[in-house]
Design a protein around this nucleic acid. Sequence first.
DNA 1: CCCCTTAGTATCCTTTTTGATACTATGCTA
DNA 2: TAGCATAGTATCAAAAAGGATACTAAGGGG
Lengths: 119, 119
Amino acid sequence: MEKKPELCRVEDALGILVGKWKPIILLHLLINGTMRFSELKRHMPGITQKMLTKQLRELEEEDIVQRVVYPQVPPKVEYSITEYGRSLEPILEAMHEWGSKHTAHKEEKEKRMAQKEAN
Amino acid sequence: MEKKPELCRVEDALGILVGKWKPIILLHLLINGTMRFSELKRHMPGITQKMLTKQLRELEEEDIVQRVVYPQVPPKVEYSITEYGRSLEPILEAMHEWGSKHTAHKEEKEKRMAQKEAN
DNA sequence: CCCCTTAGTATCCTTTTTGATACTATGCTA
DNA sequence: TAGCATAGTATCAAAAAGGATACTAAGGGG
């Protein structure tokens, strides 16, 4: 662990993953490879066009995803993870694992709470 | 990698690390062990009392940090990472490393941009 | 009696993020 | 000729996050 918190770069990584939909977008692209805009949207009920566009633009800006536009009507735009973006995979994996454990941890905690209240 | 993004628990982990100061707070506690509120505050110029309190409360709520109050005046409250909280360390470490590489990546990109503009 | 200390709260305000909705281009189909 | 499809943009509104500032308790020192 870095001994100087001032030099901590955790926020830089965090900044890329943060955004209400970014992890799910990345997961979808990691699993399915290339996806069209509308395809992504269909897989994320609840997201608005604006949001999806914004998040994808931000990921593109950081070279995490690639955007390919086909000059057609109706428009066709495909998104995919870049090689560079794939370097995030271990982190996502670790976070998913930790998140799963944490969910279990919280459930247990709640059970203990309920137990206490019963007394 | 989990094959069903709907079951993705990345956000759960993310939610805990997100907040403008949380990673730095955790780093400080990981490095220094136990710290008083004022000590933490001194190490983070720019943070307000309210923010520090809020972030610590949230971390406490998730069992990541422990809060010990000494019934004295003036007050004395010590914070430290829990055993459970330490399980986040590998993730923080991975993110820090990735963040460092990303910073380098961006700098190179900027250089290339500047180069292009010169032509 | 006033002020210092620490670890907070309370209040108000600004900024950022997110959401809802409507609008666009253009070729194809009914 | 009206309507559909796709990948957006524009505008406005709401909610969440963050920040500035003032206030508190209670004992010790001057």
